[in-house]
């Protein structure tokens, strides 16, 4: 028997690994990857809660499903933007992205 909390602990670690990456990395793609981690950990939580606490229902399941779909869309757009930026300034370091500020 695996306790629900085990899953939660794993996902929490993953979540904060993502957050740390989000702070730490300076590359846009790396930041995006960190976001994927965060999303994934949340997905796990949804699935786990659904399975353990509300076994008769499907909300968590579907939420995860939709989240995967949306994250795919988000990634696609983000990567398109990143490529476009790269084309314009030959760099994707966040510290260089300050053109719109001025």
């Amino acid at each position: 028997m695996i306790h629900m909390e085990y899953y939660l602990v794993v996902s929490t670690i993953m979540f904060f690994a993502g957050i740390f990456g989000f702070f730490y990395r300076r590359n846009l793609l790396a930041i995006l990857i960190s976001i994927e981690l965060i999303l994934n950990s949340v997905d796990i939580n949804f699935a786990v809660f659904n399975r353990y606490l509300f076994p008769g229902q499907l909300e968590g399941f579907f939420f995860t499903l939709f989240a995967i779909g949306i994250s795919a869309a988000e990634t696609a757009v983000a990567i398109a933007i990143i490529i476009n930026i790269y084309r314009n300034i030959r760099n994707i370091q966040v510290s260089k992205l300050d053109k719109m500020k001025h």
Partner: peptide
Amino acid sequence: IIVLYVFSILLTSPDGDKIAT
């Protein structure tokens, strides 16, 4: 998604994070 990542990484910066400040 991972394929997308890999491609875009290859497209944008072969040097990756190395030159990152």
